[in-house]
Amino acid sequence: MNKIQEEAWIVEHETLARHTYRLTLQSPEIAARARAGQFVMLRVRDGLDPLLRRPFSFHKIIPEQGVIEILYRIAGRGTGKLSQTPVGTPLDLIGPLGNAFEQPPPNSALVVLVAGGIGIAPFFALLKNLSASLSNTPLHLFYGARTGSELLPPQMFDDLKVTVHWSTDDGTLGYCGRITDLFQEFMESGLPRPEMVYSCGPLAMQYHVARWALNQGVAAQLSLESLMACGVGACLGCALPAIRPDDPTADHYLHVCKDGPIFSPGSIQWQKIQMYRTPPRTFLYS
């Protein structure tokens, strides 16, 4: 369905983990149109700073209540100011934008999700769909963060029919190390071949999932991000280096907002990605 602009009211706004917030918005028109994997462009506040909207994936979509939820982590001026916005404030949204997660084949032997940090956000909406459509398929979620205080509380996963494998870089919770290492160890321990891998998180993590999926010949859907100005394909700012099917060596770009945010690992030219951005220095904004 078509994208629209809607004034959405903040119904709830709470902290779930360190620097991590859940925003519940009354947004009936967008809730009715949204699909898991898509995103909204949210104007943090009126005025000139921050100037641009910010993209956020749908954390939960509850059309029967006219509600959407957004899960975000403070990463800069925009999210810093958003975190101070009280319940009852109207926010200007454009959405739903971009493509959605595709369902795995029915009766899949195994479906795996890999999430790093705030990359967990879109997986709640996805897991709701998966647990409804795949009654016999085991769902495994590999979920890691830098430290335990950045992970969502475990009880949030209770209602979802998913087995969660936890990791932290510093070992404060679950497996000590990167989530992709835990994921690979599990895959090598005799689990059936997954029919589909979903991945969302930092670029380095996405790269490791993509490499694994391409080597194993497993289908994967990666939710990727980029700095974005318009969200609708006009500014062409959110480009990612991509492989042009008719000429794999040519300079070619896909755009996160209209070609994504969900991409297959084989469509991206990983070696051309330039990681110029420093990971967020949250202390500057909180």
Partner: peptide, 30 residues
């Protein structure tokens, strides 16, 4: 959007950065 004789891929990303009350772009005429 600016049209050239032949298609242009544009510049490598990152192509955008937001500044106070501003936006710096280097799309490269994709």
């Amino acid at each position: 959007k600016g049209i050239s004789l032949h298609p242009r891929a544009g510049n490598p990303p990152p192509r955008l950065v937001e500044t106070p009350a501003g936006l710096i772009n280097a799309i490269g005429l994709e």
